[in-house]
Design a protein around this nucleic acid. Sequence first.
RNA 1: GGGGAAGUCGCAUAGCGGCAAUUGCAACAGACUGUAAAUCUGUCCUCUUCGGAGUUCGGUGGUUCGAGUCCACCCUUCCCCA
Length: 376
Amino acid sequence: MDYQIISASKDCKARAGEIKTAHGIIKTPIFMPVGTVGSVKGVGVNYLSDDIKAQIILGNTYHLYLRPGIKIIEKAGGIQKFNSWNKPMLTDSGGFQVYSLGKIRKITENGCTFQSHIDGSRHEFTPEKVIDIQRKIGADIIMAFDECTPYPCGYDYAKKSLHITLQWLARCFERFNNTQPVYGYPQSLFPIVQGSVYEDLRIHSCREMIKYNADGYAIGGLSVGEPTQDMYHIINICTDILPTTKPRYLMGVGTPENILEGIERGIDMFDCVMPTRNGRNAMLFTWNGTLNMRNKKWEDDFSPIDPTGTSFVDTLYTKAYLRHLFVSKELLALEIASVHNLAFYLDLVTKARQHIIDGDYTSWKTDVLRNITRKL
RNA sequence: GGGGAAGUCGCAUAGCGGCAAUUGCAACAGACUGUAAAUCUGUCCUCUUCGGAGUUCGGUGGUUCGAGUCCACCCUUCCCCA
């Protein structure tokens, strides 16, 4: 994997770049739609590539391991053969499930045991196993196994958890460096910075991670409920230390506002369930603000869903019709909203990139934020 | 004409002497950040300074400290037999 900076802002840490992977080039900053089980919920790969213009999507190690199971993915010839998305992919390690499945998992010295949320069966994830699985899934970018700490998180726990994450990281790289890709194209392993909201832990975490000279670095454990300003502060601390020559990935973030603020602080890659999940729950993101499509006020509004949107759904369908679909619980509503939101997110980062190149990112961002944070 | 059943907050339901009254749907609003989420939460008779206050269970009377619940009559539906 290769990363090149095309253009860097003079008045902030934003940069426009290109990541070259075996499955294609990713222009950064980028938003990566989340496709947990190998599918971006409600959105076909044709829409993803042609309409939304997604460049890379996510998969999840834990979910794919449970279902369909790694054997099936291996038999298919890797995840991109399996899901017919023959563009770059990234798999998360299951570290987020250590957090989100907190009630049905247990962290051990060796790794983490989970009780399957599907059938209750017990499974153990170790750093080695997570690397082996991600080798077999075959994403271009794979993630280190970490613990995403909750918020609030006491200092002592955050420190202890970071210690475990760092130990796991060493084991991940050990395994990664001693194994080969299964499908003939290279994979990159990204470490994940942890340390909750504590400056010294984050600094320590970054310094330990850069020793591995990874192809890219992720910042995890944010947007889990901490005040937004704390998140921005921690991002700043991390991007001051992480090498500028490598892509930085802010995991699980976020709102359009979070993304623009993240870009300003030197983040290149984002992923978040928000555009798809909130879309399925009738919330639309637009350049003029957010709207709840279930609200009665759209009942007889026959204007386009989003006249400024880039997706075909934006001008093809009206607000009144989309509201009708949501109220009627029609599946098409979920598809339209997901496609629209993802197209907006990709449009957002595409425009951000252009303004970084044009050299007016911060002023553009300030203007944009005034509008997109409104509630319509 | 004879016999039977039933009327509860938009609809459907629960209720069997202590009830502003169950549940579901509908309606209306809100939440959602590396997806256990096409999910979840709240409101849903009226007014409210959110402490409460005022009117309710087809109608009118009655029994009772107290009635959606018991009694009488009336009104209205539905079913069965002619």
